[in-house]
Amino acid sequence: MINKIKSTLAILSIAASPVFADYPEKDIQGIIQWGAGGSTDTVMRSIAPHVEDELGTDIVMINRTGGVGAIATKYVYAQKADGYTLLMGAENPQMYKVLGLGEIDYGDMVPISILARGTPIFVAQNDAPYNNMREFVEYVQQNPGEVRTGMTGNGGLTSIVLAMLDSQVKLDLTRVPYNGDGPALTALQSGTIDVMSTVLGAAIDHVRAGRMKVIGLMDNSENALVPGVEPITEDFPGLSNYLPWGPFFGVFVKQGTPEEAVIKLQDAFRKAATNEDFVNIMTNRGYTMMNLSGDEASSFLDKYKSVSSWLVYDAGYAKHSPADFDIPRPESN
């Protein structure tokens, strides 16, 4: 009954509208996985106006937080696959299956755009007696349990980065939990913790201001924003299997969305992501622009899922084995 009324009303309104243009013919909703003021929110809100220009329609941005992004993911998945509901998210859903957080990940979505990725780094208090990863590892081995590091929850960036390190060398660190890297970096400055692994962009300004120092770069090549810091693969070549790795921001629609809408959206985002203002904002924040869509995006997502899922599983805090979901082990290159 309700559906009947609904379709009648819809037909009426379409019949009444003078122009029945192609997609998009009404506002698009952008569902953001994280809260206002967070990095996902900021990135999405800074690209949206450029996409609006390309599409000629409004994108209404809605924050639907909860369940480390699972609520928003579930919500978008429950909507019609008509291209009018976008999922704007970060890397988290790729870990849902092994962490037991949900059934739906980006494999059930069509990637519109993988906008950018971050690079993990290690920062430490200025007066810490180590200046690079080699010295850090030696210090921790000589003083087990002495060094405090911040943690942002299992499956979060710090847990995966520490798991990577753990796969090469066992370290006894005291892990103090925080709700995010913002509060943890504040705690680093308060002296509550000594070391923190975080994404480059979150710490770069504190480093520039001399409030903390970079001791390690979790990448396989140097980064222009932190000149002189050796990539971690110099000390631990075994890590090159996993790298480059980093949290990312992406836009998705539900699988089954009409081809026409997907292509229009992909085009719009691709053009918007080359906008000079947007690129400046992103590189200033220390993100590496990716602007991937289609197959490239899918293979990036698969690699991320495979690396992170197996690391977390090997470190012992996954609920399910990645093998249960046919996630292959990362190949060594």
Binding site: I2, I5, K6, L9, A10, S13, I14, A16, S17, E25, K26, D27, Y84
Partner: peptide, 11 residues
Amino acid sequence: GIVPEREIIAW
């Protein structure tokens, strides 16, 4: 719900 609000607004 059953009211196609976005269509109406667009129209």
